[in-house]
């Protein structure tokens, strides 16, 4: 019997090692240790073993059983490992490119706009929005620019025919003409009329001028404006904001300069120059970047704010110009062509 058991283990060892798949394994397992298996059959012969030999024989059968189980476990392990291996294809070449397009990219104008909004958000400005189709009142009259004012010349505008109707752009007076806004300052008027001071908003958006398109001009462009209304606002506060904005955006090495200028809706008014010689492609010491000033008392009076009580400042700039400066882009038309070789540079 002992020899039979030893032979059983030896045979199992060679049989199990050759197994490749689960069904063969299950069959082999049944044959060896199943209820009708060979080991079970041998165990049934225990009755015929002399009583004094039984403990030794019992021990031997148990050892055989353990040995077979170990062999079965090992065989199953091999099969399972082979099964997992079969789920894998050939090894990858990690240097092959992903066939999926991507990643996507934000447009550089979006990147600059959002960065400016973040910078301004930190000092309490929220982002306001308003219609691109405007009326003469919001675009000019409320900004102290009457119909015959030469300042209207400098922003020759796109108008709509008198018959045009815009269901969700409100007029201030019935016979106003609709036009495409020439600046985002119209948002300031709508915000002031809707709310009450103090106010602190930034209004980025599309603006339009009837102008020839070339490397630095576009009939369709983007502006970003800030309006701050509170008590006792000063020229020094305005300068502090601009120093803060451009220091944050372009680095501490950036300097700003005010040049006295004229805008009908601010008094005093300034043009803002930047000195940022550390930026790429910047060759001139001073680069004009925007306009600003203290809100003209007549603008406050027009929206029903008492100019004796409220004061404020406004600042505006072109986003294309800023993006061109920031990234060293030479031609404004690239922003509107959407060549992927341009767009992907900002991914």
């Amino acid at each position: 019997m002992q020899a039979t058991l030893t032979a059983l283990v030896a045979k199992a060892q060679s049989d199990l090692a050759a197994l490749k798949a689960r069904p063969e394994f299950e069959a082999a397992k049944a044959r060896l240790v199943g209820p009708n298996g060979e080991l079970t059959a041998l165990m049934k012969q225990m009755g015929a073993v002399p009583k004094d030999q039984r403990p030794a024989m019992g021990k031997l059968i148990n050892e055989t059983k353990t040995a077979l189980q170990a062999l079965l476990d090992a065989a199953l392990g091999t099969i399972e490992a082979a099964e997992l291996q079969a789920q894998l294809g050939p090894a990858v070449d990690p240097t092959l490119p992903s066939p999926d397009a991507g990643p996507g990219s934000y447009h550089p104008l979006t990147l600059v706009r959002e960065e400016m909004c973040r910078i301004l958000r930190k000092v309490g400005f929220t982002v306001a929005d308003g219609p691109e189709v405007e009326t003469e009142y919001y675009c000019f009259d409320a900004l102290n620019t009457p119909a015959d004012h030469p300042a209207r010349d400098t922003q020759d505008s796109f108008f709509f025919p008198p018959t045009a109707r815009f269901g969700n752009v409100s007029k201030h007076t019935p016979d106003e003409k609709y036009l495409l806004r020439t600046h985002t300052s119209s948002v300031q008027i709508r915000t002031m009329l809707k709310g009450a001071p103090p106010i602190r908003i930034v209004s980025p958006g599309r603006t339009y001028r009837r102008d020839t398109s070339d490397a630095t001009h576009s009939a369709n462009f983007h502006q970003l404006e800030c309006l701050y209304v509170d008590k006792n606002v000063t020229v020094r506060d305005l300068k502090a904001l601009l120093d803060y904005i451009f220091g944050s955006l372009l680095g501490k090495a950036t300097k700003t300069r005010f040049r006295p200028h004229y805008f009908s809706y601010t008094e005093p008014s300034f043009e803002v120059d930047l000195s940022a010689l550390h930026l790429p492609k910047v060759k001139k010491e001073w680069i004009e970047i925007g306009g600003c000033g203290m809100v003209d008392p007549s603008v406050f009076a027009g929206v029903g704010y008492d100019p004796e009580v409220w004061s404020g400042y406004a600042f505006g700039m072109g986003l294309e110009r800023l993006a061109m400066l920031l990234y060293g882009i030479d031609d404004i038309r690239y922003f509107y062509q959407n060549d992927l070789r341009f767009l992907k540079q900002f991914a």
Binding site: P103, G104, S105
Partner: peptide, 13 residues
């Protein structure tokens, strides 16, 4: 953009 689109800016007119 998170779904791999490239953001464009086109003329309104």
């Amino acid at each position: 953009v998170g779904h791999d689109f490239h953001e464009c800016v086109s003329y309104t007119l």
